[in-house]
Write a protein that binds this DNA or RNA. Structure first.
Length: 321
DNA sequence: GCGATTTGACCCGT
DNA sequence: ACGGGTCAAATCGC
């Protein structure tokens, strides 16, 4: 069922590295083209989306994880844009949506609290709970709060891990189509499309600061990559305004991204990988989604990015709220 | 009163 | 038939 490349996923890891590098490359191109060619931007955005899906799919399919991932499974083989699987809210496919593509599973820590403390930046509404055969804890079913109002088809399943009650296996299905509207809901001033694109690009580049050196060196056997924060761009030390992590709270703030191998001396838990992967992927998807939207309308202002050196010029960072 | 959660029933793939 | 995903009425909380 799974397509494991090798015992420890080394080959696959390199492939993923290449994919991630390609993402960066695409972003660069996007950066260059951002000012004058919205159509190309869309195309690039689509590529980013696809590549990211593929990368995450490879990782989640088990290639990287030496530890068991309870019921990690299903439908990660050929990730693609999930729109084809967009379920009608009607009663046609009540079941087996599980097997649709575009699923992602992460293992997250509750931080001592219950499942209700899990916050992935989205607003979820619980619609069911079930005892699962062979599992010690029931599985909770959640759908996006904006399913009705905005037709967002994203769902997730949360199940407490058997082996560690403080951990939760969270399986996401579908992608959020409500993202940019969430921004509005998150108490934002209305912004011009380009302004959104600018800050989103900024967020994207921040998210993509992957420290890939550790990968090639082979010194990190259980940490495929780590995140590093470009100075001043990532909230590692801004507890007061966590919602600013990704530009005005548009995206995630929730997971603690202390993923550097240095922080986990004795053991590196796969959940960090998945958290990280999922985070990157989610951010990318949302960013791209919004970016596509943003670039649909004529450009207004200037944007200047330098993704490698992290020189950004864009309009905002301080909105008046 | 409204929105979220709970929970038993229902649906459907295996 | 069974197990898992969803529905929807009842209930809860603000």
């Amino acid at each position: 069922m799974e397509s494991v490349v090798d015992g420890h996923g080394g080959g696959s890891r390199l492939v993923v590295m290449a994919e991630l590098s390609r993402i960066k490359e695409l972003v660069k191109q996007l950066d260059v083209q951002l000012q004058d060619c919205p159509d190309l931007c869309k195309h690039l955005a689509e590529q980013i989306f696809t590549v990211t899906e593929r990368s995450i799919g490879m990782i989640c399919s088990g290639s990287f994880d030496g530890r068991k991932r309870s019921a990690i499974s299903a439908g990660l083989d050929s990730p693609q844009l999930s729109e084809s699987a967009t379920p009608s809210p009607l009663r046609t496919n009540k079941k087996r949506k599980m097997m649709a593509k575009g699923n992602h599973q992460v293992r997250v820590s509750s931080g001592g609290g219950g499942a209700e403390t899990l916050d992935d930046g989205y607003s979820w509404r619980k619609y069911g709970q079930k005892e699962i055969l062979g599992a010690q804890h029931p599985r909770g079913y959640y759908r996006c709060t904006y399913r009705k109002t905005r037709g967002c088809a994203a769902t997730k399943q949360v199940q407490r891990a058997d082996d560690d009650p403080t951990l939760f296996d969270v399986t996401y299905h579908g992608t959020h189509t409500c993202v940019h509207k969430m921004a509005a809901a998150a108490n934002l001033q209305p912004t011009t499309p380009n302004r959104d694109a600018g800050s989103l690009m900024k967020s994207l580049s921040s998210s993509l600061t992957l420290n890939t050196e550790g990968l090639t060196s082979g010194s990190q056997q259980s940490t495929p990559f780590s995140f590093s924060s470009p100075p001043g761009h990532y909230p590692s030390s801004t507890p007061s305004t966590p919602e600013n992590c990704f530009g005005q709270g548009v995206l995630f703030s929730p997971y603690r991204l202390e993923l550097s191998p240095a922080t986990s001396d004795s053991s590196c838990y796969p959940m960090n990988h998945f958290e990280a992967e999922w985070k990157v992927q989610s951010e990318l998807q949302q960013l791209v989604s919004v970016l596509v939207d943003a670039t649909s309308t004529p450009a207004v202002e200037e944007t200047t990015f330098s993704l490698d050196g992290f020189e950004f010029f864009d309009f905002d960072t301080n909105f008046d709220v």
